[in-house]
Each structure stands twice: as C-alpha cells, then as structure tokens.
C-alpha cells in the first residue's frame, strides 16, 4: 500500500521567520531581558500604591513594626541621672529633656541634647551617655563662679575666664563674691582676683574693683574712697597702700582718693570737708 502522506514543509512560516529574526535583534533581547521586568515591577507597584487607603496602610504597618522594635525594653530609657550639677542647673537640664520617661533611646538625639545643655550658662561642658539599665547619665562640668560683674544688663556671675555662669537680680544674693565693673573687666578677671587677694587685709572695706579705660584698675572702698592703681605693678602699689594704711591709718582718715598711678609720687586727695577743716586749723579764712 502506498502511503498518501505529505511530508511537512521544512520552510518556516512568515511569522516564525519574522519572530526568529526579532529574537536575534540585540536591542530586542536586551529590552525583553531588562526592560520587561522593570516595567512589570513598576506597573505592579504603581497599581498597588495607586490606592490611597493601601498606601497609608502600608506606611502605618511599616511604622508599627519600627515602633515595636524601638520600644523593646532593651532600648528604653527609664531614669535620668545628673552628675556634677547644682540644683538650679539640674532643674534647667530637666526642663530641656523630653517630658516623660520611659522613652525609647531611638527618640533621643544625644548630640542635639548635649548642644542644648551646653547653652545653659552654668554648664561648661557635658557628656551624655545611655547606660545599661535604661539610665540616661548626664555628666555636667559646671563653671566655678569667682566674681560678680555688673554691666548694663544687670549683675552676672562669671568664672575665671570671664564667661557668664549665672544671672542675678541683685548683688546681695552672692555677697561672698567680689564685684568687678568696667569695660574690659571680664577679660582680665585673673588680674582682678589677684588684686582682691592682695587686698585681703582691708577685705571688709572693699566694695568692688573698677577697670578704667580698659587699661588699669581702681579699687573702690566704702565711704567713697578710691585707690587708683597703675597699669604696671598694680599689686605692689596696692600692697604699699595697705602697708601705709596699717602703719599710719591712711584709709581711716578723711581721704577721698589715694593715687598710686605714679609710683615715684603717690598722691592723696582729701575730701571737701577735710580740706576746709585743714584751712581753718591753719588760720586761713574761708574763701567764700
């Protein structure tokens, strides 16, 4: 029996031929291999996130997972421990910190917090540390107040570097600290302190020390007495005045100014009343 079979045509159809040629095109292959997945993913994301509700849900769930992790007990800060600060500074620091403990350590920005605490006048330096057991340790290095400075804005407590450590409403609040006044006084606190130290024998009478012309010092005593000190060798000049005062009771007399600016020629100015009295004693008539 002869088989009536037709052999299959070996030729590709027009479409098979075109498709094969298309597949051999490099740009088409690259487009399909790279472009198609990118487009598909972008399309899927676009469709999914196109809905407002789904977008908020997604963000909320991501946020919730994040919060869950951050609020684990290992990361919680329970208490605050402030070291090296007096009560007033401690109160100021507590005001700066976020209101309520416990608090996640992820929410604490220690660097920013440190900068804020440094803004407090009384704080020279501070280091913050979250210690195990959920303790936020604030180690404060306070400024040491050495003097008071009276300026246009009022009375300030300053440390040895002339930096403000506190503000006072009246001088009476810190009677233990000497008062410094005048332009440029803040920058030369050390000199002022040396002079104050030299004036220890007349400590009760010293009211303050004044920087004159940003150049030299005047020591002001009560009863409006002044000791004018030179630019150079001020401590030595002051010691001379104190020696005079102890030997001849110079300052107990009716003297307005002891001028020590010229070391060779110390000068004394008397008060108006003392001057008249002296003239009277010498037998002169009053001028007026």
């Amino acid at each position: 029996m002869q088989q009536m079979t037709r052999r299959a045509d070996p030729a590709p159809s027009r479409w098979a031929y075109k498709v094969q040629r298309m597949w051999l095109t490099p740009s088409f292959r690259t487009g399909l291999r790279v472009g198609l997945p990118v487009v598909a993913v972008a399309l899927a994301l676009g469709v999914y996130l196109g809905n407002e509700q789904r977008r908020t849900d997604l963000f909320a769930s991501v946020e919730a997972v994040k919060r869950d992790f951050q609020e684990r007990p290992e990361f919680m800060v329970q208490t605050l421990a402030v070291e090296g600060a007096n009560e007033k500074t401690q109160k100021a620091i507590e005001e700066l910190l976020p209101a309520s403990f416990p608090l996640s350590s992820f929410d604490l920005n220690l660097g920013e917090l440190r900068d804020q605490i440094r803004e407090i006048d009384a704080v020279k330096d501070v280091s913050l540390q979250i210690r195990t057991g959920g303790v936020l340790q604030v180690a404060v290095d306070e400024r040491v107040p050495v003097a008071l400075w009276r300026g246009p804005e009022g009375v300030e407590v300053i440390d040895a570097y002339g930096v403000r450590a506190d503000k006072l409403s009246t001088r009476v609040e810190r009677p233990d600290l000497p008062l410094i006044v005048g332009e440029g006084a803040k920058k030369n606190v050390t000199q002022a302190l040396e002079l104050i130290a030299a004036a220890t024998p007349i400590r009760e009478r010293v009211r303050g020390i004044v920087r004159v012309s940003n150049r030299r010092w005047d020591l002001v005593l009560d009863r409006d007495q002044r000791i004018l000190l030179p630019e150079q060798g001020a401590v030595h000049a002051l010691e001379r005045v104190i020696a005079l005062a102890q030997a001849k009771e110079l300052l107990a007399r009716d003297v307005a100014v002891v001028d020590m600016r010229l070391a060779d020629r110390p000068t004394i100015r008397m008060t108006e009343i003392a001057h008249k009295e002296l003239l009277r004693v010498r037998g002169h008539k009053a001028e007026d």
Partner: peptide, 18 residues
C-alpha cells in the same frame, strides 16, 4: 521564497546574529 526563508533562518540560527 520559502526555500530562501528556510536557508536564511538556519544560517542565522547557526551564526546567532540577525
């Protein structure tokens, strides 16, 4: 035309280029 298509397709396939 079909014969040319056959032979061109086979040669392209072997060469791997269009």
């Amino acid at each position: 035309e079909r014969a040319i298509r056959t032979v061109v397709q086979a040669a392209q396939k072997m060469a791997g280029v269009r």
